[in-house]
Design a protein around this nucleic acid. Sequence first.
DNA 1: TAGAATTGTGGGTAGCTGTGGGTAATTTTC
DNA 2: GAAAATTACCCACAGCTACCCACAATTCTA
Lengths: 154, 154
Amino acid sequence: MTISKNTFTGEYSYSLDAKGRINIPAKFRQSLSKNNDNTFVVTRGLDTCIWVYPIIIWQKIETELKNLSALSAINRSFIRNAVRYAAITPYDKQGRILLTPSLIQYANLEKEAIIIGMVNKIEIWNPKTLYETDKQNLKLDPSTFEDLAEKIIL
Amino acid sequence: MTISKNTFTGEYSYSLDAKGRINIPAKFRQSLSKNNDNTFVVTRGLDTCIWVYPIIIWQKIETELKNLSALSAINRSFIRNAVRYAAITPYDKQGRILLTPSLIQYANLEKEAIIIGMVNKIEIWNPKTLYETDKQNLKLDPSTFEDLAEKIIL
DNA sequence: TAGAATTGTGGGTAGCTGTGGGTAATTTTC
DNA sequence: GAAAATTACCCACAGCTACCCACAATTCTA
């Protein structure tokens, strides 16, 4: 069965073990293209979470970043966050990646973690932080949220 | 019988089994386009029900989501909530899809379920909830309802 | 109308998935 | 250079899922 490649959807609950390893949902691994080399790129997200990219996608982002104007402050902060902390991380036979203590601290990760598919990337969250963040954003800007919903959801 | 592709109409009663599987009406499966890969995308509806899209339709939504800039926090929240509850779900040889416990809980599904064709998507309801919701909506805003009827029904 | 094909529902099971832990190899520290 | 710490790789295993088959009921067909 061939479903669309490099597309991540859904929400999963996984546990971070004592060694700092966390499982990537089997479904996500299956939706990777063959030449992805059992490897992800793991980095800080712009929110308080960890972003995980398939290498293929990451390479596209890198080339796009080169074309971004360095004059814009938001671009600079994106580059600083996303690129500076990016680590190429292969997953083991069981499908787990190893998170560095620095990343775990950045995302406030404890034992229980939520993994969310974000179409072309994956997010790893502390459940409480996730809840708070989305609540905040919605409260700050409900109209944009509704506009987007009307435009995009059929 | 050939009706236009990806078009769902009619109301059916099906039963959710102990494993969380539910049948998609054969008529609906037949009206799918060939390159639909025996796959649906299942997610939370805006009402208290489950929405089921042919994957072709969902891919359109995905493309739109990909075009949203990841630099805006509200965009990120929107993508998160649009994708988070969505599961890409192939149906088995008997034509059934598997619903996650989370979705079943969201829609208050019990054994008996109503499946409704909604033109480009399918809705799965608890019969009681469906009845109550429509009664409510009609009571709240009968004029809009009539306007729509006038505009759309031939 | 009778037989054939399809459809809806239930259940069993092999193999996979998620999680923990052990050990050898490698790096770091003194 | 030896001991300690860290890392990478391997194995184990319970629980679950995907896949298969069965079968009654319904629909189609000739």
